[in-house]
Design a protein around this nucleic acid. Structure first.
Lengths: 243, 243
DNA sequence: CTGGCGCACTTGTCCTATACTTGTATCTTC
DNA sequence: GAAGATACAAGTATAGGACAAGTGCGCCAG
């Protein structure tokens, strides 16, 4: 697959802007600086920036520079935190039980995301005060998982074990009917609904390095998003149709 | 029976496209690359690709390349928008059908959120190309809804009708089993899972002015969140235990 | 201390050149 | 009719450059 350079640069710049790397009203590095940093010509950098401008994320004034146009959502999502952090904060004992650990041939979807034919697959059950509340599967490319042992994964969170620095992530949340095996693991009746979350974690450069699937029983969990920016619609943002 | 080469190549390419091997916004390998990969001439590759184009699966622009026309699984990872914006952008005709319109005594939950005993309740069915994809209920305080008519609500989006400026919003997404009435409206089997989204829209000052409930059939919708900040965990952020 | 000039730096807009892409046509072989 | 080989036209992405126009800031004359 051929990469369109200015699109990937636009994606990386969008991440940096939304991450709050550049303060509101302050300028971004000049086109010349960005050109040197990304090893791309000024034309390419401009096209990427103009893509972001068409999103309304940044703007430019001649002679002044590029600057962040609107305040992106910033830390609002981070403030909510992960469910494990909430559990430990409220004094609930949380533990992870490893169900499977091993190198497998990646499915088409996993192989496509991680760009790796063989992957480390770790299946896990998360418990709160002894009660199961999530079934998690994590995949990572073979070369990253090679140095990990089963006891490593049981002892520490996955992101602490990777030498690779992690950047952003994309989460996809959907509803589904619980599978037969998950129904047993999560101790819910067959046919009950679950929230299914797929998360793709990437390096700062944008290369996907972790793919994880999280299944939660619907009756115990929900998903919260804080949207501090001006709303242009009452419709949920981020929702999309799948085929 | 002799095999038609370009048909078998078309089938293989179709499989790779629907498997999600090529992300939206990126191009497929060039005709020359595919020619080398499949050991077929460019003419044959072209005929295969044009077969896929006639299906509406892929498209090409001269000098640019071939790309996935309608995304079967994933979409632009950075940009999030409302589902209506995605629909109009992709040329799908979207319409709203009003099911109920009237002032009612607020339920305990609605009254607590909007701080108003009587509210305007609008129940609505959203359709994409004639097919229902969401059942939406909107509540707003009596004094704000007093100036709205049923035809107003049918004609324009809700946020355009309010004089009050809107600030942020909080979304809560959960999974549930479809209710009997929603099953009929959304044309899904009884017992199938739905995504249920509750959204509280507030003024810039923070006073809640709109409460809405959106119910989507799970098989057609999913929810995407882009998390550009440094990840401190692989767990989904924003998820929480209820009750 | 102040006003104005000039320099350095920025974006905006052109240009040329190259490599690569699809679109189209022609000829040959089976 | 299917398939291969080839050639050329037209469009796109990118690199690299030149220049105009706008901005910010320091310096200098007064």
């Amino acid at each position: 697959m051929r990469q369109i350079r200015y699109r990937t640069i636009a994606d990386q710049l969008r991440h940096r802007v939304v991450a709050g790397e550049f303060a509101l009203g302050r300028t971004l590095p000049s086109e010349a600086d960005l050109s040197g940093h990304y090893g791309a010509s000024r034309v390419t950098i401009r096209r990427a920036l103009e893509l972001l401008r068409s999103d309304g994320l940044v703007d430019a004034r001649q002679g002044f520079g590029w600057f962040v146009a609107v305040d992106p959502l910033r830390q609002s999502l981070g403030r909510l935190g992960t469910i494990e952090a909430q559990l430990t904060a409220s004094g609930v004992h949380s533990e992870r039980r490893i169900l499977d650990f091993g190198f497998v041939t990646a499915s088409a979807h996993v192989a496509a995301v991680l760009a790796s034919p063989t992957v480390l697959e770790v299946r896990r059950l998360n418990l709160a005060d002894g009660e199961p509340f999530a079934r998690v599967t994590v995949w990572c490319p073979e070369e990253l998982g090679a140095s990990l042992s089963r006891s490593d994964v049981e002892r520490a969170p996955f992101y602490e074990l990777l030498s690779e620095p992690l950047g952003g992530a994309v989460q996809t949340i959907g509803a589904a009917v619980v599978s037969a095996s998950d129904a047993g693991l999560l101790k819910v009746p067959v046919g009950s609904p679950v929230l299914r979350c797929e998360r793709i974690t990437s390096t700062p450069a944008g290369r996907p390095v972790l793919l994880s699937e999280h299944v939660f029983p619907a009756h115990r969990t929900e998903f919260v998003v804080d949207l501090p920016m001006a709303a242009r619609s009452i419709a949920p943002t981020g929702m999309r149709l799948v085929d």
